[in-house]
């Protein structure tokens, strides 16, 4: 057993020596990476946002989704930097889970705590933070 291992090690050292003359690898000039790699969690957050939130809050979170047309009060502009700064992640998650009525705002924003998992809510918050601010 030991001799075998020894042999392997020996062979390995020899091989290492032999291989050290590195061939000049063809460096790729223009790789074709996929578009802007979004992290997996962010992608999930986006998917959840697009499915549940976008109808009112709009594609960019500006509060201009198609369902917002006839609503009063209008949905919150989630991309507003002042709003984003004011709210902590926990605040946002809380508002999503308990809804407008739960945090002392309009009941028009429904509570999602029973529909979305805790992780889904966290992912949506992550995505909200990545919305382009304007």
């Amino acid at each position: 057993m030991k001799t075998m291992r020894l042999g392997v090690v020996l062979a390995g050292t020899l091989l290492l020596g032999a291989c050290s003359g590195k061939p000049a690898g063809k460096a790729a000039a223009a790789p074709a990476p996929p578009p802007k790699p979004m992290s997996y969690e962010l992608r999930l957050g986006r998917a959840t946002f697009q499915h549940y939130c976008q109808t009112c809050h709009g594609e960019t979170g500006a509060g201009d989704g198609f369902n917002a047309f006839n609503l009063d009060p209008k949905p919150r502009d989630l991309s507003d930097p002042a709003f984003q700064k004011k709210k902590t992640d926990a605040d946002l998650a809380d508002a999503i889970q308990r809804g407008g009525a739960g945090v002392g705002l309009s009941a028009m924003m429904p509570p999602w705590g029973r529909t979305l998992s805790k992780e889904q809510v966290e992912q949506v918050v992550l995505y909200l933070r990545s919305l382009p601010k304007h």
Partner: peptide
């Protein structure tokens, strides 16, 4: 119906959302 905010998505008469 009012307290839960159902009208944010459902139309009843002339008021409410479209979804």
């Amino acid at each position: 119906y009012t307290a839960l905010g159902c009208r944010s998505c459902h139309i009843l008469g002339s008021a409410g959302g479209y979804y």
